[in-house]
Design a protein around this nucleic acid. Structure first.
Length: 181
DNA sequence: CAGCCGATCCTT
DNA sequence: AGGATCGGCTGG
């Protein structure tokens, strides 16, 4: 059982308010460091994972963002108000976990690249046992995946995002956030 | 409709 | 260095 600042009662940490996600993806990505993903499995077992690495994808202009392809069935949820889950399959094997951010009509998302137990976006999806049924899930209403308002980590490094060399000038934006050890 | 390839990871 | 594995996007 994790223990934050002497607290042992995990119910003391509420879910993040929807307004938390209704800001720009870069700010949300930074402030997600230290927050806790809670995954309740079908067995009823609940596991917690502290976010330690994120990346921001910021709108249609950002060539690294899937929304740069426009509004499609795949990108639809990114156009919704922040606070929903965007998952997609990559390389036919890995479900990537993203949280939609920003306001209605402003397609943005934050990719969860690492948690305390596992680093790597593909590994995170596997650890959380994600699948396409999580697409569009509301973080504020879900009974199987949500985020708790645990203390933010304010010491971190920034870096360019991974695997987006094709994104012209956008590839150099330091929108990857990595919590210090 | 065919072909390509990705916000990846694991094994050789 | 290459394989797994598949849905979305592109071009004809």
């Amino acid at each position: 059982m994790p223990n934050f600042a002497g607290k042992t009662d995990m119910t003391a940490f509420p879910r993040l308010h929807p307004d938390f996600f209704r800001r720009d993806a870069v700010t949300v990505a930074r402030e997600l460091l230290g927050r806790t993903i809670v995954r309740r499995f079908e067995s009823g077992e609940e596991k917690r994972f502290v976010i330690v690495e994120t990346e921001a994808y910021l709108g249609e202009d950002d060539l690294a963002c899937h929304a740069s392809k426009g509004r499609t069935p795949r990108t639809e949820v990114m156009y919704h108000e922040g606070g929903k889950i965007y998952v997609y399959l990559i390389y036919g094997m890995y479900w990537m976990l993203n949280f939609v951010t920003g306001g209605d009509g402003h397609p943005q998302a934050v990719l969860i690249r690492g948690v305390d137990k596992v680093i790597g976006s593909g590994r995170v999806g596997r650890l959380l046992q994600l699948d396409k049924s999580f697409y569009g899930e509301d973080l504020c209403a879900s009974n199987r995946l949500w985020v708790e308002d645990t203390p933010v980590i304010t010491t971190f490094a920034t870096a360019p995002r991974v695997g987006v060399d094709y994104a012209k000038e956008w590839k150099d934006m330091e929108w990857r956030f990595i919590a210090n050890d």
